[in-house]
Amino acid sequence: MNANTATMTDSGIPPGKTGTWWFLASEIPVFGGLIASYIVVRLGSAGWGEASSHLNFTLALINTFLLLTSSMTVVMAHAASQENNYRSVANFLGLTVLLGLGFLGVKAVEYTTEIAHGFTPAAGIFWSFYYGMTGLHGLHVLAGIIVNIVLWIGALKGSLARHGHRVELAGLYWHFVDIVWLFLFPLLYLA
């Protein structure tokens, strides 16, 4: 590489995206550690399948569907932002937020029915992991919803146009949260 060019030496990837990827890279071991712990402890003791059978598979399937759909809507928001159509960005972000809230709502219904049946976090090791894993994931969904609401307001007010790339960055995060669920769902509900 020769000197005397006035521009900085860089990776060619915009800083925002680089930073987001590094952030996600550090998030993977959080859930990676949790999931690995779940697998190792589960392999070491019995009775997990029985506990798992008390979960509501149908609701979880609905939730999977909600999250997958929301991943599609953030992609469409990103596509709209590249065409500078912020009216459409706002619509798709709003839809994403609604789907995310729907996910949390269904999760809340699950929690309350489970606790009503006595399956509290203290009900055994499966339930520890169930509440730990879905709870931490739920917090990530909540964080994603907040980010998307902020962007949605920006899109409505028109201030987002100057920071259009943020839609993509929020989308990367949202996909990550979605992918985590795709691991949690079979591990907790199907296995």
Binding site: S26, P29, V30, G33, A36, S37, P121, A122, Y131
Partner: peptide, 22 residues
């Protein structure tokens, strides 16, 4: 490397506060 310990800290806090038994 810190991710798994963040998960661990959450688990330990849950053990202390809401009765899980990790």
């Amino acid at each position: 490397s810190v991710g798994p310990l963040i998960a661990g800290a959450v688990m330990l806090l849950m053990d202390r506060l809401i009765g899980t038994t990790f």
